[in-house]
């Protein structure tokens, strides 16, 4: 198939990805900024992200799939606890969670 096929696939992927973003810009002008529809769309966006993150943690694809659910959930709990204990410091919370995962799965 050669290199060119990879670029065809990558370009198609980029086009569909931009399509959603561009459509968002095109549609935004027709919606009232503080209206109900916008409220609903905001809720859908946050729910989608929460669903994606939760899926990444509970049913991971790739290397994380080799760790157990217990280890992943414990690491998430440690990240949250550190985050809250250290005055909502995102960086320290994230580092604590990742370190916990490495140590617990070792």
């Amino acid at each position: 198939m050669g290199d060119y096929w990879a670029y065809v696939v990558l370009t198609a992927g980029a086009a569909i990805t931009y399509f959603w973003r561009g459509l968002g810009i095109a549609m935004a002008g027709r919606l009232r900024p503080n209206g109900r529809v916008m409220d609903w769309i905001g809720c859908v966006a946050y729910a989608l992200l929460a669903g994606l993150i939760s899926r990444m943690i509970v049913v991971p694809i790739g290397p994380l799939a080799e760790t157990t659910l217990t280890v992943r959930l414990a690491s998430v709990a440690i990240a949250l606890a550190m985050f809250l204990a250290l005055r909502r410091n995102v960086l320290l919370g994230v580092v604590a969670g990742a370190t916990a995962l490495v140590l617990l799965s070792g």
Binding site: Y46, A47, A50, S54, I57, R72, V76, V90, G97
Partner: peptide, 29 residues
């Protein structure tokens, strides 16, 4: 690999005050 979901989780919940979005996120999770 694990940094990514944890970071998203922390920044998303960091200061979310709108109860509707909070409900949506809890249900989504």
């Amino acid at each position: 690999v694990f940094l990514n979901p944890i970071y998203f989780m922390l920044v998303l919940t960091a200061d979310l005050r709108d109860p509707a979005r909070l409900r949506a996120m809890a249900l989504g999770a």
